[in-house]
């Protein structure tokens, strides 16, 4: 028992030293991820198992099968894979380099569910004894502890803290500022670049929203006994925004009001739900959730109007 305690203390000291060494790794940020991961002593105490693998967009299906579609929708560059072994313990690291921070955040928000972060990880994360999900800049990373050994939790966190700085600096996608965090239903926040991401949040028929010209942010808000679903689209040009509004208001049940962001109310055939469209600058907002127009306008003015 004494020997074991001594070993634990020694390991804790080593971990602390390791964490203090983190600033030294900042110079390896971004592009050199494979190079950094290939270094033998990148993760002290553990040895690399096999070579660092780099997987391209066309090859992603072979690694995660149909799961690749979501990554490709957001914009995916490459996947870097590295496995580490220590005696009979194993940790797997997968770093998904996405097109930009919006894309990486989009993936992270979908994959995180209602998981909770580990305070010991210095960056955006969700943590369980099986996996740590990380997001930094344009990178989404997963550290997997396959059998879920509780004894490896500290080492998972240590690896996460080593990896995060080499992924570059934290960057928050600007689209997230379009929705207030106050009052947001936990786990409902989404960034949306296409129909697959949209389908994790709310259903719209194909082709109605032009994701080539617009990107979206979504969340749910409890409001006066209902849950208001909020989808905000930021379109790249005024023409794209206007075209989007034209499409959505094509079968409007009520129309524009002067001096108001409210543009129209519409329904989708086959449902009883009403949707309310607002336009303010480059942003198009769609509200729904079993509410009447007056409530939608009230919600918009109270929570979203700048």
């Amino acid at each position: 028992m004494r020997k074991k305690e001594g070993c634990i203390k020694s390991s804790a000291v080593k971990l602390l030293l390791l964490l203090f060494l983190l600033p030294c790794t900042a110079s390896f940020a971004g592009e050199d991820i494979p190079g950094k991961l290939s270094e033998e002593d990148f993760f002290p105490g553990w040895r690399k198992e096999g070579k660092t693998k780099i997987v391209s967009a066309e090859e992603l299906y072979g690694v995660i099968n149909g799961g690749a579609e979501l990554f490709l929708e957001f914009g995916f560059n490459r996947l870097v894979l590295q496995r580490y072994l220590k005696k009979d313990h194993e940790l797997e690291l997968a770093v998904y380099e996405m097109k930009d921070a919006f894309a990486a955040s989009g993936i992270f928000l979908i994959k995180r569910g209602r998981g909770q972060p580990a305070p010991g990880i210095r960056g955006e994360n969700i943590f369980s004894r099986y996996q740590a999900l990380l997001r930094q800049g344009k990178y989404f990373a997963i550290i997997t502890n396959p059998p879920g050994r509780k004894a490896l939790e500290e080492e998972m966190m240590a690896l996460a803290n080593l990896v995060l700085p080499i992924l570059g600096t934290p960057e928050k996608p600007a689209m997230l500022d379009l929705l207030p965090s106050e009052g947001m239903e936990p786990g409902s926040l989404r960034l949306i670049q296409g129909k697959l991401a949209l389908e994790t949040a709310v259903f719209f028929p194909d082709g109605i929203i032009d994701f080539k010209a617009c990107e979206g942010v979504y969340a749910d808000y409890p409001f006066n006994g209902k849950t208001v679903a909020v989808l905000r689209l930021h379109c790249s040009t005024p023409d794209a925004r206007d075209e989007q509004c034209t499409v959505l208001c094509a079968e409007a049940t009520s129309g524009e009001e002067a001096s108001s962001p409210f543009l129209c109310a519409f329904t989708l055939t086959g449902t009883k739900a009403s949707y309310y469209l607002f336009r303010e600058g480059k942003v198009v907002t769609i509200l729904t959730g079993g509410i009447e127009k007056a409530r939608a306008v009230e919600f918009y003015k109270e929570r979203l109007l700048k």
């Binding site: 709310v202 109605i208 055939t269 739900a273 079993g290």
Partner: peptide
């Protein structure tokens, strides 16, 4: 019937069947 359920109150039916504003379906 197609619907989306959330942890809070269930949202109303949003869509069912093939009739759409712009029917470009899978």
């Amino acid at each position: 019937r197609a619907f989306i359920q959330t942890g809070a109150a269930a949202l109303p039916v949003l869509f069912y069947g093939p009739t759409l504003l712009h029917p470009v379906e899978d």
